[in-house]
């Protein structure tokens, strides 16, 4: 049986402040797949995730990005999210004065409303929040604190995975969720991601390090360089990159 295509990106080009960062990306995610995108600094990894999420800082030049068969580049940021696209931020934003629980309740209920579902009652929401916070071993006390304010680096990253667990996205883009984590936090984050992994959804891990991929084993590994995917392989590729770096790939690419 043909697997459902969640994301289909063709020749996508995008710029920031007039500078072209994505120079023709082709990328496909089918249901049940985990993809890792690696590559040297400045190759466009975060830009790619941001463009898919709809960050207004980036301008779409040409090419297409279809999500569940719809052109997402035409959709508002919030509608992309409500359609089940989730971005785990590399730098989660602090929101003083807005408590985690208020923020999440609004987010969950806005998404339910979009799908024509009744809002969760306070009791249902609390129960869900406690369950999901436990998955990433996030202290329930943090739920009464302002979003990300005064959270440690590790707590911020676990909070991203907690939000993902609350929202149960169809497609999760995790932008360097592993950077800055110690080994325990990394294991916790990976457990959270693996819990979400299913035959119905897709996960894209943007990472610098092979070590995350020891915990979340990807089906495909891609190398992004100068705004293009220059090489794709399987898990073995990330091991080779870990040992040998990107130079051999870049040389091969530039000689073409």
């Amino acid at each position: 049986m043909q697997k459902e295509i969640i994301l289909n990106v063709e020749d996508l080009r995008a710029s920031v402040e007039g500078k072209e960062i994505l120079q023709g990306i082709n990328f496909k995610v089918a249901a049940g797949e985990v993809h890792a995108i690696m590559g040297p600094n400045g190759s466009g990894k975060s830009t790619f995730a941001s463009v898919l999420a709809g960050n207004p800082k980036y301008d779409h030049i040409s090419g297409k990005a279809e999500y569940m068969g719809k052109d997402i580049l035409d959709m508002s940021i919030e509608d992309r999210a409500r359609e089940g696209l989730f971005l785990g931020f590399q730098y989660p934003v602090e929101i003083p004065g807005v408590s985690m629980s208020n923020f999440m309740r609004l987010a969950v209920n806005e998404q339910r409303k979009y799908r024509g579902e009744e809002p969760l009652t306070a009791a249902q929401f609390l129960k869900l929040m406690r369950e999901r916070a436990a998955v990433v071993e996030l202290d329930a006390k943090l739920m009464n604190r302002a979003v990300n304010s005064g959270f440690s680096g590790g707590e911020k990253k676990r909070n991203e995975i907690f939000q993902m667990a609350m929202l149960q996205p169809k497609l999760a883009l995790l932008d360097e969720t592993d950077s800055g984590l110690d080994i325990d936090a990394l294991r916790i984050v990976a457990t959270g991601v693996n819990n979400l992994r299913s035959e119905e959804n897709g996960i894209v891990l943007i990472t610098h390090y092979q070590r995350l991929l020891d915990y979340i084993v990807p089906d495909y590994v891609h190398v992004l360089y100068k705004g293009r995917i220059i090489y794709s392989g399987d898990k073995e590729l990330s091991l080779k990159l870990e040992k040998e770096g990107y130079d051999w790939l870049i040389k091969e690419y530039e000689s073409k």
Binding site: I77, I95, V98, F103, M104
Partner: peptide, 18 residues
């Protein structure tokens, strides 16, 4: 902050109000 909240499904006006 508005972008972050919208990425979670909250519309722009609600995000600004919150």
């Amino acid at each position: 902050a508005v972008y972050y909240m919208r990425q979670r499904g909250i519309d722009e006006k609600a995000a600004r109000n919150l």
